[in-house]
């Protein structure tokens, strides 16, 4: 390299200015998330956990767990939706989801039958919200049919709407829409895919 030709490119090559180690950015990011959380300006914190049904995204507001998402939903798309519907002040902040991650891990290892977490149903309204509130009462290892759920929420004709409420459940696994089956015992649908629904039902049958 000819030093008399110093120009933009040479500046861009100055390693002490340019090299940014991933650890440095990781440390800065963690510090940012911690301070933002302490100062009350981190509206949505999220964390990604590995489970037997694949990666799950756990997202939480100040009020509680607001979203559980399967990888097949597209994690970027899920975050974009949270940004639009809740707040764009979103950071990956694993520490804020320590308790949720621990309970999810316990659930998948069969040691936890009931989630004990603050829940934020901000992403669900009206009839769907009513259905979700009922689902939380279906115990570990038990199932109900879509028709039974419709009757339980006082709208026996709304079987299809119950199906939609389950399919759009913002908190799968934690709000157990996987415990709702068709009246003939077949699986119906599931936001995490039928393999995931089967895995959850088997897990609960074995651990109940």
């Amino acid at each position: 390299m000819n030093n008399t030709e110093l120009g933009p490119v040479d500046i861009a090559l100055a390693p002490e200015l340019i090299t940014v180690e991933p650890e440095v950015l990781g440390r800065l990011h963690a510090g940012l998330a911690e301070r933002a959380s302490r100062e009350g300006i981190l509206d949505v914190a999220y964390r990604i956990v590995e489970t037997p049904v694949g990666k799950l995204l756990l997202a939480s507001t100040e009020r509680g767990l607001v979203r559980v998402a399967y990888e097949r939903e597209g994690l970027d798309a899920v975050l974009n939706t949270l940004s639009e519907r809740l707040s764009p002040r979103i950071l990956e902040a694993p520490a804020r989801l320590g308790e949720a991650a621990r309970q999810v891990e316990e659930y998948f290892s069969g040691r936890r039958h009931v989630f004990d977490l603050p829940i934020d149903l901000a992403l669900s309204a009206g009839f769907r919200r009513t259905v979700l509130q009922h689902l939380s009462g279906i115990g570990f290892g038990r199932t109900e049919s879509y028709a039974e759920v419709a009757r339980a929420v006082g709208n026996p004709k709304a079987v299809r709407a119950v199906g939609t409420a389950c399919a759009t459940n913002p908190l799968p696994v934690v709000v157990p829409c996987h415990r709702v089956l068709r009246s003939d015992g077949s699986l119906g649908g599931y936001i995490g895919g039928l393999d995931a629904k089967t895995t959850l039902l088997r897990l609960e049958a074995a651990a109940a």
């Binding site: 200015l17 940014v20 764009p88 979103i90 950071l91």
Partner: peptide, 27 residues
């Protein structure tokens, strides 16, 4: 016209902003 999650901004611009900070105030 959708607003990206802030996490995306840190991911896309975090390194550049750090380089600028280093050049302006020192490492």
């Amino acid at each position: 016209d959708m607003k990206q999650p802030f996490e995306k901004l840190v991911e896309l611009h975090g390194a550049t902003v750090l380089r600028v900070c280093r050049a302006v105030v020192g490492p």
